[in-house]
């Protein structure tokens, strides 16, 4: 029995390190790829401010209050469920800092009760989002397997978290000791509370899935060209890094023969156009 437990504990530890590595590397890689991909033209969705501070204000409104989403007349339910879910998730993460810090900062202790409440809010918000995916005909139509997977993972995280708080309490000292052993790279034996293990595994699953899934919207939003560009194309020149290369490739590439002039067709050449259409003048 002890051997099996050790083996299981070892697996959990490996999973913990692996998931964190995949999460960190995956997200960084995604950001790198997206950052590297050029934005050839200015495409902000207007009305957009003409200066950077205005753009920052709009983005803050989007991130903090889901401003764009709230513009829709039929999105009040989604806004409510979505906003409370995200806020709840954020507060719950803050609350969990007590398991990763020693000594625990006083502000982390201050958000403990709020964090518990946020966990309950988050739990019901997920249920509401679930409910919406099946009751709204249009949303049901676009829902994919991946959307459900993520909802289920997060539901498991919230449900096991609340279970540990209110029903099956694990040995918190043991849990924190395990987490610290992971942080300081000399892993000890994992706590064998089944609810904790399920909670732990679902968080790992979420971390692994994060960079490959739609969860990447958390960082992707900040790179969205319709939101992060200032609306000043006439006063400030935006440059397309691949414009010259593409132009040269076309100009120097093979051109179709123009039957009228018997020359390679060059639409960018004013002289050719004159020769073709202004014969009467010459």
């Amino acid at each position: 029995m002890a051997v099996l437990q050790n083996l299981f504990s070892f697996t959990l530890t490996v999973l913990a390190y692996a998931s964190f590595a995949i999460f960190a590397a995956g997200v960084l890689y995604k950001i790198y790829i997206l950052k590297k991909t050029p934005v050839p033209l200015k495409i902000p969705t207007t009305p957009q401010s003409t200066n950077v501070s205005g753009v920052a204000a709009r983005m803050a409104g989007d991130v903090l209050f889901f401003k764009s989403l709230s513009k829709g007349e039929t999105e009040s339910a989604l806004w409510t469920a979505g906003w409370f879910f995200h806020l709840g998730f954020f507060l719950v993460v803050l609350r969990h800092l007590r398991y990763f810090t020693n000594p625990i900062p006083s502000w982390v202790m201050l958000v403990q009760d709020l964090g518990i409440f946020a966990g309950i809010v988050m739990f019901f918000a997920i249920l509401a989002l679930f409910f919406r995916r099946y009751t709204n005909e249009r949303v049901k139509h676009i829902t994919t397997f991946a959307d459900l997977t993520i909802l289920i993972i997060i539901f498991l995280i919230a449900a096991t978290g609340l279970t540990m708080k209110y029903m099956i309490r694990p040995d918190i000292v043991e849990v924190k000791a395990y987490i610290f052993s992971l942080i300081f790279l000399h892993p000890s034996k994992a706590p064998m509370n089944p609810v904790f293990i399920l909670h732990f595994i679902s968080v790992m699953a979420l971390l692994i899935y994060f960079p490959f899934s739609k969860l990447i919207h958390a960082v992707g939003y900040f790179l969205s060209p319709t939101r992060n560009q200032a609306n000043n194309p006439r006063t400030k020149r935006h440059l397309n890094p691949w414009a010259d290369e593409a132009w040269d490739k076309m100009v120097n590439g093979p051109r179709p023969i123009d039957s009228k002039t018997n020359e390679p067709y060059q639409p960018w050449s004013q002289e050719q156009w004159r020769k073709k259409w202004l014969k009467q003048e010459n």
């Binding site: 949303v139 676009i142 739609k214 990447i216 919207h217």
Partner: peptide, 14 residues
């Protein structure tokens, strides 16, 4: 980037 990003970040919220 618009194309690549919009492929990735849609959450199908409806």
């Amino acid at each position: 980037r618009s194309v690549r990003l919009f492929m990735d970040i849609c959450v199908r919220c409806g």
